[in-house]
Design a protein around this nucleic acid. Structure first.
Ligand SMILES: [Mn+2]
Ligand SMILES: [Mn+2]
Ligand SMILES: [Mn+2]
Ligand SMILES: [Mn+2]
Lengths: 222, 222
DNA sequence: CTTTAAATTTAGACTAGTCTAAAAATTTGT
DNA sequence: ACAAATTTTTAGACTAGTCTAAATTTAAAG
């Protein structure tokens, strides 16, 4: 069965939203907002995806991916993230420059290609934003990171990922001197606005707002 | 101006045919045969490309690319050939396996990407089939190769390219032991059917038909 | 120079993917 | 429990790209 570029994007959107909201049904409006399409357009597509057994769709009740749909979505995610690694590691793009190009590359159809690319890149476990890369069978190696915003104590952490992939956020982090794998030592927690004072890799200290911290994934160290 | 995937394929087809037939106008039927679309479909597209000033189109009189159309076509060709180099040199694909994947990759839109890819590959001058790769300005370094079929004499030649990119032809050459850059010594020319007996890289000798020879580009050596 | 054949275009129809406006169903608030 | 607000679906329309069948134009043959 042939799955179009557009259909792949819907499946990926449903997967991402579903993942975000604890695997409950995803609503038409959520998909509509995510893809910046009108709700009526989404309904049309849901009917087609349902026809193809890629989603389970009950009118007015939201949708869930079928196993087939989930497999397809994970493959697209896998391709997206592997291409991002290629762009950063091999072509020297910055981490804030690769998302849009990967949005195109993720739709290239060739199993051979993606496996050879994976080999060439040394079978990376995560992409330039710290997101895990599923293996050829769709399995993720689950990593237990927490958000820098939620209930952290003073102490040492290491940056493992971001949950906002926007250019502006990534550039802001770069400007602050924060990259993946860097050590962050929380020196102060401001009760009033939840902002943090952090020392970055034992060098400069910077303030970071609650909002900015809420998109930064870290693991405790110490 | 945004140029679609489909439009890019038409421009590339017109470029290729135009190139083949000495830069005279290309006919609707030629494009139709090349793209395996119906003539009526081609006519529709020619009107749209003409509207966008990518081709000069006079009904019933065939088409030529405008400068803008030619630049676009050459960019697509450049991308196709660079991606083929990537697939063969970096991902270890065989030369007969890369064309279809490159047909997809050639439509990825990003100037940054193609320049960085070119750098990464070491600014190659030709693709895995010996076809020249235009530079970022669309300039080809012109190479003067001849077909192994046309009026060759006994003597030494080196393989510089092929004019048939089909998997079956490329696999046939591989089976014969012929690759790009290999030396071919013509030992016999059979007057009757124009077939040749050639020694390959000073190793085995093989017979090659006129038809097979007529798609093999070579340069004289000696 | 006419007739016939071939090439090309036009007309009309279809699918995928999108939209707006209106109708229907569900959820929320009192 | 019922009215109002919100969400979702339906209806109808549009574009890009494709097709078949018919009409038109150009080229070839006698
Ligand atoms: Mn991304
Ligand atoms: Mn990413
Ligand atoms: Mn090719
Ligand atoms: Mn090639």
């Amino acid at each position: 069965m042939v799955i179009s570029f557009t259909e792949e994007n819907y499946l990926k959107a449903i997967y991402t939203l579903s993942n975000q909201y604890d695997w409950v049904e995803v609503s038409t409006n959520q998909i509509s907002a995510h893809l910046k399409n009108k709700a009526a357009t989404v309904t049309d597509m849901l009917k087609r995806l349902s026809e193809k057994k890629l989603i389970a769709y009950k009118p007015y009740q939201g949708v869930k991916l079928t196993d087939k749909g989930k497999r397809t979505a994970i493959t697209v995610v896998r391709k997206h993230r592997l291409w991002e690694v290629f762009l950063v590691d091999k072509l020297n793009f910055k981490w804030d420059e690769v998302h849009d190009i990967a949005e195109q590359l993720e739709h290239i159809h060739s199993d051979e290609l993606i496996e050879k690319l994976d080999d060439f890149l040394g079978r990376p476990k995560s992409d330039p934003h710290g997101d895990p890369i599923p293996d050829a069978n769709g399995k993720f190696s689950n990593k237990r990171s927490i958000l820098l915003s939620s209930g952290v104590k003073k102490g040492s952490y290491v940056v493992t990922g971001v949950t906002d992939h926007s250019t502006s956020y990534l550039q802001y982090l770069t400007q602050l001197g924060i990259s993946l794998g860097f050590q962050l030592k929380i020196e102060e927690i401001n009760e009033y606005d939840q902002s943090l004072k952090i020392k970055i890799n034992n060098k400069q200290s910077n303030f970071i707002s609650h909002k900015a911290a809420s998109h930064l994934l870290v693991e405790q160290r110490s």
